[in-house]
């Protein structure tokens, strides 16, 4: 195995990992603030992917431009889902809240997946643009532009999200609510609206990730579970509370997967994340998700 192959594989891992990080950001912020686990997060990613696929195929819209539709679109879907479903769960105490949100997400998974199969068929869809195969080459290492853009967009999102959470009133309100919603309410923060905005923000982030997933690979109705699981692994790796930390954990997971593919063959790359996940869970069965968002 040449050194180039190793570097190339690890680099690819890091680039894919930036998608894991993006996928996890939305899940993490919703979990951290609302204390609900939306297992249909992967299905929101799937919807985002189809959004940009159809925008490209029907409207001839460049996938990056389609974000202007997909991200607000998923934000609206997020608003509707929270308003119609998850807001009803938030009233419960912590344990019931999380359990019921899990079950609702579960039902939602089923609905969205089946609906997508009916509307879009079970075919794998991908977006092929004029620059799909474009790549830079540095010292014999290929850097495909489309994949590289995932990393760049990821970094932009991390910086923007961090700025939003640290510098704006709404961001501070979200962090305060994550830490202690009772006190946040007493400080005059409208908790319900904070929850609503946060959930929609998580959905919008899922939409963004969905576009990149489709552009770099493909989308089909059943990709959701796999992405929810990836996002969960990253959240468990990173813990809650740090935006850059979550993104970085995603990149690390991607690198770890590639490294294990190099060592044991491609068939086992999916397994390494799950094994890490199970090890962390068994070491720290409780209190995994402490902390608020920053």
């Amino acid at each position: 195995m040449s050194i180039e192959t190793i570097v190339q594989t690890l680099l690819f891992g890091a680039l894919i990992g930036s998608l894991y990080g993006l996928a996890a950001l939305g899940l993490s912020i919703v979990f951290g603030v609302l204390k609900i686990l939306n297992v249909a997060h992967g299905e929101l990613i799937m919807l985002g992917g189809y959004g940009s696929f159809w925008a490209f195929n029907l409207l001839g819209l460049d996938p990056y431009l389609s974000l202007l539709i997909v991200v607000p679109g998923l934000f609206l879907i997020g608003l509707a889902l929270h308003f119609g479903l998850f807001a009803r769960v938030v009233r419960f105490d912590e344990e019931d809240r999380i359990k019921n949100s899990l079950l609702i997400g579960f039902g939602l998974t089923l609905i969205l997946q089946t609906l997508a199969t009916h509307l879009f068929t079970a075919d794998e869809r991908s977006i092929t643009t004029s620059y799909s195969t474009a790549a830079w080459e540095i010292l014999g290492i290929r850097l495909p532009l489309v994949r590289f853009s995932g990393l760049i967009i990821g970094i932009i999102v991390v910086v923007a999200l961090r700025w939003f959470l640290r510098r704006t009133y709404w961001g501070k309100a979200i962090r305060a609510t994550a830490e202690d919603w009772r006190t946040a309410a007493l400080a005059g923060i409208d908790i319900r609206r904070t929850y609503l905005v946060t959930f929609a923000l998580g959905a919008a982030l899922a939409g963004l990730a969905g576009m990149l997933v489709t552009l770099q690979g493909s989308v089909s109705p059943n990709i959701g579970l796999q992405w929810t699981l990836k996002a969960l692994i990253v959240v468990v790796l990173a813990g809650l509370g740090s935006v850059p930390g979550t993104f970085l954990a995603g990149v690390l997971l991607g690198v770890a997967e590639s490294a294990s593919a190099l060592a044991f063959g491609g068939a086992y790359r999916e397994l390494v994340g799950i094994v890490i996940f199970l090890i962390i869970l068994s070491i720290r069965p409780q209190g995994l998700f402490g902390g608020s968002h920053a």
């Binding site: 009133y169 501070k172 309100a173 962090r175 305060a176 830490e179 202690d180 009772r182 006190t183 946040a184 309410a185 007493l186 400080a187 005059g188 923060i189 409208d190 908790i191 509370g241 902390g291 608020s292 920053a294």
Partner: peptide
């Protein structure tokens, strides 16, 4: 609650209600 706060009533709860993970300035700004 948030509307009551906006009408000019404020409660400092028994548990004080400072946000531990936020800075002093951010707590005050909130």
């Amino acid at each position: 609650t948030h509307k009551i706060v906006n009408s000019g009533l404020f409660l400092v709860p028994e548990w004080r209600g400072t946000f531990a993970t936020l800075s002093v300035l951010e707590n005050l700004e909130l």
